[in-house]
Amino acid sequence: MNIFRILGDVSHLLAMIILLVKIWRSKSCAGISGKSQVLFAIVFTSRYLDLFTNFFSIYNTVMKFVFLMCAYITVYLIYGKFRKTFDNENDSFRLEFLLIPVTGLSFLENQSFTPLEILWTFSIYLESVAILPQLFMISKTGEAETITTHYLFFLGLYHALYLANWIWRYQTENYYDQIAVVSGVVQTIFYCDFFYLYVTKVLKGKKLSLP
């Protein structure tokens, strides 16, 4: 475990907590893409099936459990408790455009053609595109609440820190996982545009709004 990896995990956890706190405090999930959150719940579910088959560490097990809980609670708040505040109109990204290619690719390009491994690969590919419905929603409405941008910032930071983690692991352990690295680079690229707006607008106290 290196510093990039632990900071990456903390950023990831912080992002999910920020989102939960935002929804809980405002009693509203306005501006949040329910579709992205459902995709993240699918990502964690299909990836963490190894909770039943492999044990790595207490840390690993606890974090996986916490991530799963956060994802499911978020989905419940959006589609259950606060569904009246959910902006269904603007959450119009077509999920089949993501799910069909991602499913196909996970069958074609994986490390081992076994159910658990295909599901793991599927989760990695899906995670790299799962934020697109959220980014699509922001581009459609042209604005995002500041707290939503903090959520996206920490989610993007997690991806960037994981890239540093992989470089570190490659240098020190000679370990690398091509599927994770390529997907990680792809998903980090999706955040670049957002990072630019975050630094130039949100950090200067302005609301994120697109012209």
Partner: peptide, 10 residues
């Protein structure tokens, strides 16, 4: 070569 499960990251 036998496949070894190495996915120790989150």
């Amino acid at each position: 070569r036998e496949f070894v499960y190495t996915h120790d990251e989150l």
